[in-house]
Amino acid sequence: MDALNSLKIVLIQTSIYWENPEKNRSSLSKKIALLITDTDLIILPEMFTTGFTMNPSNIDKNQGEVTLKWMQEIAYKKQTAITGSILFFEDNTYYNRLFFVFPNGTYTTYNKKHTFTLAGEDKVYKAGTKKLIVDYKGFKICPLICYDLRFPVWARNTENYDVLLYVANWPKQRITAWDTLLKARAIENMSYCIGVNRVGVDDPGYEYIGHSATYDTLGNEICFSTNEEILHTTIHKEHIDETRNKLKFLEDRDTFTL
């Protein structure tokens, strides 16, 4: 297929050092340095510099800015976009904020809409209110964060996006929901759906077993892993167009606004 209508994507399924941004950036820098093929987009897990901590005051407030600068340096050096969410402090408020950084260093952001009340995230981090659609190399990408996966109305494809992307810290005991919902989001939105999860055990004792994956518009699995590793996947605009033109399911969407 035409490379101009494709995206080469890297999913980094990694363990995360608890509340240690410097060590996580160093570890990820080494992994990213190993990439020798052309890459259009690198995807990192949710809160990839700290783990899913509910104690953001343990982290220096400037670490979000430091990590953003690191992402910009990676993007420029590798000439690729990079995305993932981090703990970010702004205007005396903590956010679980995703950054999508373009190769030229410019960026756009998404604040997690559905904060995870079971862990008390809603009491620590301010929830976002706006959905983000990123236009990148001819693809429209909708990036969301972890718990957002359980809410199909928020992910509903009213913008005709091409890729639905979730970054997560999704634990082992609920991994069946992760697998099932990623596939469902792909099918119902007739888009590629990519989920990037972490591995390892965090400080509170929760185990993570990855299951990072890519599904096509019909819910077919393209890549999947339970190991700490780098996954490569390529998505094609032609597949999206052919499926939607043939089946036209999105034209039968219920009409309502959120």
Rank of each mutant, 00 (worst) to 15 (best):
L231F: 08
Y94H: 10
V101Q: 03
Y192V: 05
I187F: 05
T234A: 08
N92S: 13
D202W: 03
L182I: 07
K237M: 05
L98C: 09
E251K: 13
Q13Y: 02
A184S: 10
V199Y: 12
D203M: 11
L4N: 13
R198T: 12
N157S: 03
L68T: 07
A155F: 04
I86K: 08
T233V: 09
I59A: 06
G105P: 00
I86N: 05
V196A: 09
E221H: 03
I42A: 13
A186T: 01
L98S: 15
I209G: 08
T176V: 11
P204F: 05
P204G: 06
A186W: 02
E188M: 03
L231D: 07
T106F: 08
L11W: 06
T108W: 02
T53F: 01
T49Q: 14
Y17N: 15
K112N: 11
K172D: 15
I187H: 03
E221S: 14
S27W: 04
D148R: 00
A177T: 15
T129I: 10
D60W: 09
I36T: 11
D40A: 04
D40I: 05
L181Y: 13
N220Y: 00
G105V: 02
S212M: 14
D162A: 06
D203N: 14
A168D: 15
V124L: 03
K112H: 07
E228C: 07
G219I: 06
L98A: 09
E207M: 05
T117A: 09
R174V: 12
Q13F: 04
R198S: 14
K77R: 12
L258Y: 14
K137H: 04
F256P: 05
F48T: 07
D203R: 12
I16D: 00
D2I: 08
K126L: 10
A75C: 08
S212Y: 10
I141G: 12
E228W: 01
L258P: 02
K126I: 06
F48M: 12
A184I: 05
L87A: 10
A33F: 10
E188G: 02
L247G: 00
W154A: 11
A177I: 11
K172Y: 10
R97Q: 09
D38W: 02
A119C: 06
D179F: 03
H114F: 15
T158W: 08
K69R: 13
V124K: 11
N20Y: 14
R97E: 05
S26C: 09
T106H: 08
R244K: 13
R25F: 00
P103H: 04
G195K: 06
